[in-house]
Design a protein around this nucleic acid. Structure first.
Lengths: 148, 148
DNA sequence: CCTTAAAGTTGTATAATACAATAATGTAGT
DNA sequence: ACTACATTATTGTATTATACAACTTTAAGG
């Protein structure tokens, strides 16, 4: 029944988060963490953006993103572009060094992940990827509708 | 190809953790958080255990679990049973109040989750549950093999 | 016994986060 | 054009989850 799956998903999600947090915490691939990874990925694949936009995308407080971005800037992984129309605003663009770090981080994560998924069939991997993506999208849609 | 799935899983996992963290953070279902939930669930379904065991299960530092358990004890969700054979050791058992809170938390999470999975087919839900579980198990096995 | 190991707790540090206060700039109503 | 309000971002402060280190009490092995 769907109810059973629900309860199961609900528990396994909690465990999943715990496990992933544990892995990313103690491995500390390279110089970036998960937040930094997500930010870099975002501006790398979807073009530059300001902290407000980024905060909305990741459901984080603006101040949090501001600090994360500042940290990335300080490491020369991103640079700041003043908005020509609004002198309060900036957008961040990824640097070559940032792209390189991002790629390395991705590689490191993939290697680790490959270890976990070694015994999985190709089909299972594809399905898992697809369902995760779907889940994330769905949450996004719900968030978008909510008042907040 | 499997490689594509890998990269996809790798990215979606990061997003997934971000989303779930965000949800559990701002909702604050009842009086317990994810860690507390996992601890309560563990001792509720697998019997009482000491902090060392729990720490191993969740890949957390003993001190972390010690504090989490103390917090649960303080709220009367668990109580402490001295080990009759080893006067250093305790195990924690869930109280009725703890069971009740756990159940309520589960319900709250399930309701929220149902919202997200509203449009999913039963089959998708089952598969997702199964793959999450498999993933968690696999990580566990890998951890068990590792030196550490 | 004496030394070393083990189970827990408590102190301290760090990192990611939110919320509040602030600064600078933009926008609208009169 | 002036005033009031809104918006963008930063910085200060607090909280929370975590790890590591120091310590206490107890157990186990020579």
């Amino acid at each position: 029944m769907k109810i059973d799956s629900l309860e199961s998903i609900e528990l396994e999600m909690a465990i999943f988060v715990r496990r992933l947090t544990s892995i990313t915490a103690d491995k500390k691939f390279g110089n970036i963490d998960r937040s930094a990874y997500l930010l870099l990925h975002q501006i790398s694949t979807h073009g530059c953006a300001g902290v407000k936009t980024l905060a909305e995308i990741f459901q984080l407080d603006i101040s949090t993103v501001s600090r994360q971005a500042a940290s990335l800037e300080q490491k020369d992984y991103v640079y700041r572009i003043p908005d020509p129309l609004d002198r309060r605003a900036y957008t961040f663009q990824i640097t070559d060094l940032g792209k390189q770090e991002l790629e390395e981080y991705k590689q490191a994560r993939s290697i680790r992940l490959k270890e976990v998924l070694k015994e999985w069939t190709e089909d299972e991997c594809e399905t898992f990827a697809q369902l995760l993506k779907k889940f994330n999208l769905t949450i996004n849609e719900i968030r978008a509708k909510e008042p907040n």
